[in-house]
Simulated scan of single mutants.
Amino acid sequence: MFYFFHDEPRVAPFNADELTEEHVAQLRRFLQARVEELRERHPAGSPEERAAQVLHESVATQIDELAYCFDDEEPATLKSRLAAWNKVIFAIWPWETAEGYDTDRWRQVRHTDIDDAVEGARSLLKAREEQAERKHAEREAP
């Protein structure tokens, strides 16, 4: 059976300030279920069981780091939350087609809040306008 994954996680239609501690708990439960599935299929001490343990330890550590990013809504905290969230999402997105994977929520976050998103859109628009002006000037040049 073939699964078709994106080259990277999809981009979220929400910002880091919209993430909650419950989203972190959902990620933790999903990871735990995947690890348990692996452990049930392979005997203790097998390479597969050890790989499941490595997976659990590495991704659970990332989830723990994410959980520390909900103390407040300060810009630095939101930047940390965004970075920590994206690390976890990149670690779990190969399961995108698995049962229980929240395709609507578990996406890459690009902005900390609405102000950051607006500023990003303005920057993108400005860059595209400058590019269009350069192309226009090249066409008009002798």
Results as ranks from 00 to 15, higher is better:
F14Y: 15
F2Y: 15
L55I: 12
K135T: 09
E96L: 15
V88L: 09
A52Y: 07
D71I: 08
P43W: 04
E65R: 10
T20D: 09
W85Y: 04
R122N: 04
F90W: 14
E96V: 14
P13Q: 11
P43V: 05
P142Q: 14
F5C: 11
E73K: 13
R105L: 15
K79G: 13
R110L: 08
H6S: 11
T61M: 09
R50K: 03
T112R: 13
E119H: 10
E74W: 08
P43S: 02
D71V: 12
G45S: 02
Q32T: 06
F90E: 12
R110K: 08
L82K: 13
K126N: 06
I63N: 01
A51K: 07
R122Q: 08
P47D: 02
A25K: 14
V35Q: 02
E96R: 13
N86S: 03
H56I: 05
T77C: 05
E18C: 13
E49R: 12
V109M: 06
G100A: 06
V35G: 02
E138Q: 05
P47W: 03
R105M: 15
R81I: 00
Q26A: 14
K87L: 11
A25M: 08
A12D: 00
A132E: 14
F14I: 15
R122M: 08
S46W: 00
A12W: 01
P142Y: 11
S80E: 07
W85E: 00
R28I: 13
L31K: 01
V118A: 06
E74N: 12
L124A: 06
R50G: 00
Y68K: 08
